[in-house]
Amino acid sequence: MDLFEKIERTRHFGELFVIWLWYHADIDDTMFRLSDGSLLSLSFDNQLTLEAKLAQAERTRISGGAPAASSEAREALRQGKLVSQAKIRVERDEKTWVFVLNAQTLTLTGLKIPAVMTKADDEKLYERQFLIEEIDALVRGLYERFLTIRLDAKQWKNESHALAAWIDEEV
């Protein structure tokens, strides 16, 4: 299998990762612990797009308010739809990032970073890059946690049962 095939075959990991984030943001009151023991707050913001994959391509786009807490969004999950894009807010050490996470590629678009304080071009470059790389590392850290669970049969069995029960819950 060449690299292209490997990339295409595993895109569903991104889609499940975003649902996993949604589930834990809900049941753990937005708090996530990374492998280094540090904590961050992650919540779903005001845009959520879900798409059907199995049957006819159907899209549910909910914006405004708190779409992740809506019965419409949970019902879309029950219908077998997957999250294709979610606007997410991450807070850590008094810094806030807001971005749209694209599930199939795990890219961050429309990223808003904490305010850059420096004025000189090279300092601005370092500060902006540091803030971009910091959020990139946080998302990768969360993905690593998710993979640890997803790739372990025993852990995933428990997690998937809990996830399925959460999806079935009425909001």
């Binding site: 690299l3 490997k6 990339i7 895109r11 569903h12 199939q104």
Partner: peptide, 13 residues
């Protein structure tokens, strides 16, 4: 160059 994806991120981790 290879664009980011769930597989490349896992490999890079």
């Amino acid at each position: 160059l290879t664009p980011d994806s769930p597989y490349m991120m896992a490999k890079n981790l």
